[in-house]
């Protein structure tokens, strides 16, 4: 199944050449990359997608019957036409309660093992359970959801033909997961560059990528999602929250989940895929432009004085990360 070349770990900065396994169950695929290995991998097109499950999942994604009051669907906060996010920093829900964290996009979320700002759940079914039962989101329960969906004969027929059962939590989760697998943005110019298309990026963008790496952004923003696979404290070299002012509960970060002191103000490093299309930035949505965001990052996370020229290059590079969904750029 997997072939891994043994290599010595003692040599500093040796390049790793390897073929990574494909784990279909996780839906993460990594393809062989040319040497030297880049820390960022291009997004591959989804494989083995069941078209029937996908369309069922898409329908469920847009179905307000998921929520108790029947007014809110997944797409309410994650409109696909707008980058998979409502661009809100503090969302006012139907229940009239403001959510504390800004809305992350659903695009490419299936490529990450963890989800949300706090990375509190490790699997899609768990995530779905959380959203269904969250008093401030769907405020429902599976029994109610299953009942409502069962009353729709077209659902009943679809579920029966695909899963051989009525709409159950597991079946609903599976269909939605299949749909999420399809929510990938492919063919970004940067990915084309990674695949060897030197002309896909402008020289500035290439320079921006180099700056991105040499400044150390790449230490956290790596992998296929350019982030999303590591936790980091916001404000490594300077106290971000003291500078920003206003102390909110949400700022406590991952501490809310683990209770470890070292997890205070720690958040999941967000993916930078389609970052240009999904403002505002940070968990508090405080940065409205990429430039602002890069400034904040260089200062608080990298412990450096942002150089305006470098910032601009990096921003250019970031813009090349915008991909296509269903043939349309985000």
């Amino acid at each position: 199944m997997t072939a891994v070349k043994e290599r010595s770990c003692t040599t500093l900065f040796t390049t790793v050449v390897g073929v990574l396994a494909v784990f279909p169950s996780l839906g993460v695929s990594a393809v062989a990359t040319p040497t030297p290995r880049e820390p960022i991998a291009p997004i591959s097109a989804p494989v083995d997608i069941d078209a029937r499950k996908l369309s069922l999942g898409e329908r469920l994604f847009h179905d307000p019957r998921m929520s108790a009051d029947g007014r809110m669907s997944c797409a309410t906060c994650h409109p696909l036409s707008e980058g998979g996010t409502d661009h809100r920093s503090h969302v006012v829900t139907v229940a009239g309660k403001e959510l504390l964290l800004s809305t992350p996009t659903v695009f490419n979320s299936a490529l990450s093992a963890r989800h949300g700002w706090l990375g509190s759940v490790e699997s899609f079914p768990k995530l779905l359970d959380q959203k269904i039962q969250d008093r401030f989101i769907f405020n429902s329960d599976w029994k109610q959801v299953e009942e409502r969906l069962s009353q729709d004969s077209s659902y009943a027929i679809s579920f029966q033909s695909i899963y051989g059962s009525r709409p159950t939590a597991a079946a609903v989760g599976d269909a939605l997961a299949e749909f999420f697998q399809s929510l990938r943005t492919t063919e970004s110019r940067f990915d084309r560059f990674l695949r060897g298309d030197e002309g896909a990026l402008t020289e500035d963008e290439k320079a921006g990528y180099r700056q991105f790496k040499s400044h150390g952004c790449i230490a956290c923003h790596q992998g296929v999602n350019v982030g999303g696979n590591v936790f980091q404290r916001l404000g490594v070299f300077e106290d971000y929250f003291a500078v920003r002012g206003v102390d909110e509960t949400a700022d406590i970060g991952r501490y809310l989940i683990t209770g470890r002191e070292r997890d205070r103000h720690v958040f999941r490093v967000p993916s930078l895929r389609n970052v240009a299309a999904t403002p505002p930035y940070f968990h508090d949505g405080s940065a409205l432009s990429l430039e602002d965001a890069v400034h904040v990052m260089v200062r608080f996370q990298l412990g450096q004085q942002p150089d305006e020229k470098d910032v601009q290059l990096i921003v250019k590079f970031l813009k090349s990360l915008t991909g296509y969904y269903q043939g349309k750029s985000l």
């Binding site: 900065f13 996780l26 990594a30 992998g223 296929v224």
Partner: peptide, 20 residues
């Protein structure tokens, strides 16, 4: 070990293995 000593690392594999 790889990510520890590589100049530029990617945690995707670690995540994949951990999830596995």
């Amino acid at each position: 070990l790889t990510t520890r000593y590589e100049l530029q690392h990617s945690y995707d594999d670690i995540d994949v293995y951990a999830a596995t």
